[in-house]
Design a binder for these strands. Structure first.
Lengths: 456, 456
DNA sequence: ATGTGGGCAAACAGCCGACAA
DNA sequence: TTGTCGGCTGTTTGCCCACAT
């Protein structure tokens, strides 16, 4: 009775039956989770970075070295549960890891148990909400192909055709919507029930909704907020210094006793990379800012991935590579770059760590940008043939306006595979948007002639 | 640029100019903070308890002993800032502590620098919100004496008398209310602006609002939620095991290097004490549950308080004592009990700790209840004369219903000094409420004859 | 194909005194 | 003294289409 009113821990966590497809859809296309039972590599240094990201506090005290804690621990993944924050619906995973003993460690390098599960659902759509979608004046405008693909078919003999949709979110809450096909020209709309959902989830223009239609004819829906982690305030519990002590001490203790420990992995805390381009259009200089989410800070990766990258891949300064990025519209793109150095990120505390040991330069960034660092397993070295700097990329986006999150002139397609979008900032103001905004249906983003032409 | 959108740390914390009176009013009458510069005693064990309370997770892994960490650290309090959670307005404090070196420790016991600041404001009122107060149908009914005491006087030549009130909350946000004196009979009301406040703070019936009128003729307002900590979900950042490692490692490191460390103190995470009574009324057995908030888990206390309690007070089993409690309506009450034992709470990990070393029995609880534990400095031993068990106390309250937080049949007075309230649960259902609900104006709670009669 | 806005009806918010506890 | 309610407006919500992109 001393814990009256404290039983708020995510109920879906207790049951452990959170919908995996939906979780992955919300986590994004780059996120894959190691398989339960497989061997993984855990990087305390990367874990530390995530704590910095989530507490928004750098460590400002002297944290001693933990001699028993190497920069990476080879572990057995005993348990993995997917969760979603009750307040914000932010997805995260809890993992139970057990460091292998020295004997097991040696054996670990022999069999390559590859095992990463990334069940991106097939029948789903993702739409970035417009001002109309989130206003109280109306409902939700469903992209036609999306509605046809993931909603149950309407009875078109009715006038107008309409039905009730029931969808479940990550917490297994039920949401009911009236789905109607009307208007001139005809279109799919969600009316009654939509605004309740918008206000309950506190959605604003720019956020995204995801609908999934699975094999069992069940409908699910999730949300992805527009790059602003909401919680970012564990405050009042533990100082960020103590948190860093905590993760190091927990890992060190587990390593020295070969016992299990738990970590939380939040795939939506990305490493942000910033690209800046200078191009010329309409005889006016254009500055193009591009902020991309790289692979999330994966501080637990499959052992096989680590072994392959560290022991079976030869990298050297000057070598060219490709790397996957998630765009603001949540599709995947590859960017190219060159390795400019290989060195310790923190040679004092974490000597000989492979975590972000590779300094890189991006083809598209100006020389003025500081070099970001990546880890070996994040990049795909190109050894076959050398490439000269590629033409300017297409997935451009200006940094999120710090104030209100309103959108103008944006276009997305209807199935999550968005087409390129270019927003320019420069002397000619927003005029450039018009000339670059297009729908590249059936055209490879890398090959779209119009944008390439406009950039050079 | 890698921290785009992450600057959400409480702005008032940066400036450090949060209104102290308001903070204390929200923290409650039992909370006092040590003075900056003074010497305090820090209990890692108590800190641990607060982490358990805020994460709602017991430690389920084996945490090793930290040999360099004694059960209590004598520290210098270098810095103390008051904060309020941006989302929930929950108050908390950050303290910077520096363990004294052995030489300083010895000296510490000589001069008794007493120093606890508890600036409970004088001109304030606290009202528990009714269903009418929080409904969208109307405004806020201001208790007459409260309005006269803390609101600027109305111009009664107007018909009806009305004015605009501007009050600031803990985040220095401005809230405007129309204050009007009307109705038949006449009463003070807050109308326009009130519902905006209620929905912005997500207040429900049972929560409390506090208005303060200070010497500079400024009006402040704060809230206190009805015993349900809202956040309780640091989740997704660090496992509770790691948090325990963290607080211990941080304190141990600071102790061994005599360096500073930071802690968060959340005064609203109380120790809940549960009292159960059995009485007879209307020929039906009545079970009366009483849940009280004890002194909060004060794991940082003034050194003088510690020295006095531990070295200058003689306690023994069988001794009677009094202890302060905060009631559901946020006034202070003393309850009496008897010391039933003195022993380590955790003799393995924290031998010879004074943290909750005193086992007690309460006069009002039945024998079936397990004995709670208190610390020496929380109680006030009675050495003058022995007392037999006091008549049943009056401040009764049934445990908060787990579901919706609705109130019925509650009465509070207008100045935070609430009068007794009795709610019964038993075979006769809620009928008992009627017979026990009263206003004891001018009657000492301990002496109210009607309730005493009804209980025995 | 789909975002926005005007028109309109129904629902809700919110101010008032009456009444009762 | 103050909590709740019925009565009564003014505002908002939310469904419909037209129109523009």
């Amino acid at each position: 009775l001393s814990s009256v009113g404290f039983n708020q821990q995510s109920p879906e966590g207790e049951k452990g039956c959170l919908n995996s497809e939906l979780w992955h859809a919300c986590a994004g296309p780059l996120v894959s989770l190691p398989a339960v039972g497989s061997r993984v590599v855990y990087f305390p240094q990367g874990h530390s970075e995530q704590v910095v990201a989530s507490t928004n506090r750098e460590v400002d005290c002297q944290i001693p070295n933990y001699p028993s804690l190497p920069p990476q621990l080879i572990c057995q993944l005993h348990n993995l549960t997917m969760h979603a924050d009750v307040e914000t619906d932010e997805v995260y995973a809890q993992m139970t890891l057990q460091p292998l003993n020295p004997q097991e460690q040696k054996e670990a390098f022999l069999p390559a148990d590859l095992g990463a599960t990334s069940k991106q659902p097939t029948n789903y759509f993702c739409k970035t909400l417009t001002a109309s979608d989130t206003s109280t004046h109306g409902g939700f405008s469903v992209p036609r192909r999306a509605a046809e693909k993931v909603f149950p078919p309407l009875d078109f003999s009715q006038q107008p055709p309409a039905q009730e949709l029931i969808a479940r979110d990550l917490h297994d809450n039920e949401w009911k919507f009236r789905h109607i096909f009307r208007g001139q020209p005809k279109r799919h709309l969600l009316t009654t029930g939509w605004s309740v959902f918008v206000s309950a989830k506190r959605l604003v223009a720019g956020d995204s909704v995801i609908f999934i239609w699975n094999e069992k004819n069940q409908l699910f829906l999730g949300i992805r907020r527009a790059s602003r982690p909401q919680t970012v305030m564990p405050s009042s519990v533990l100082s960020s210094d103590s948190m860093h002590f905590g993760l190091l001490a927990a890992a060190a203790h587990a390593a020295s006793t070969n016992s299990r420990f738990n970590i939380f992995y939040n795939p939506r805390y990305f490493t942000l990379h910033c690209f800046i381009f200078v191009s010329c259009e309409c005889l006016l200089t254009q500055f193009i800012y591009l902020v991309l989410r790289a692979c999330p800070s994966e501080f637990v990766i499959p052992l096989a991935k680590y072994v392959k990258a560290v022991y079976h891949t030869r990298v050297s300064v000057g070598m060219r590579f490709r790397m996957l990025f998630e765009t603001e519209e949540s599709s995947v793109r590859r960017y190219m770059g060159t390795i400019t150095g290989i060195s310790d990120l923190d040679s004092v505390r974490w000597p000989n760590s492979h975590w972000r040991s590779v300094k890189v330069g991006w083809d598209e960034s100006t020389a003025g940008e500081r070099q970001p660092r990546v880890s070996l397993w994040e990049i795909e070295p190109l050894t076959t043939f050398p490439m000269y700097p590629s033409p300017f990329p297409l997935r451009l986006k200006r940094p999120w306006p710090p104030g209100l999150p309103s959108f103008n002139g944006m276009k997305d397609n209807d199935l999550g595979m968005n087409y390129p979008l270019a927003l320019l900032r420069g002397d000619s103001g927003d005029r450039g948007i018009q000339s670059l905004n297009f729908q590249g249906i059936g055209v490879s983003p890398l090959m779209h002639p119009r944008l390439e032409a406009s950039m050079l």
